[in-house]
Amino acid sequence: MVKKKEEMKKFFTEFGMGVDLHGQDVTKAAARAVKEAISWRSPTGIVDLANINDKGEPTRDVLIDVIVASPYPDEVNAEEVLKVIPYGNKQLTSIKGGLKTKGMYLERMDKPEAPDYIIALACVEIYIDLD
């Protein structure tokens, strides 16, 4: 049983932004935001802190808490977004935010009912149970 994040120690926080230009897909934009957040840095200290063994499994509990802000928070498919993170106990909170702006409608790439550009923001936090 993994503890709640309040009972664990926050080790690392990273941020990212993701855009979906065609199709008004908030899940895609959110997944890209998470991807950007985790792609540019590597928290190597976790190997030691979470006591990761030779098989690559942490022997202490690690929780990855993702907050995604997008214009349509209810439409975000949490499971799909969390697939971007390769391993760990993951959870996602979807809140209203990000940005929506008028897009350029291309018949070949867009549906008429979904012409807008969507921008999502992501915050990825890593918690470790050090007790």
Binding site: K9, F12, F15
Partner: peptide, 14 residues
Amino acid sequence: NAISGASLPGLVTC
């Protein structure tokens, strides 16, 4: 750009 997108609270907490 490298240092802006992340924070290291673990230095204090861990």
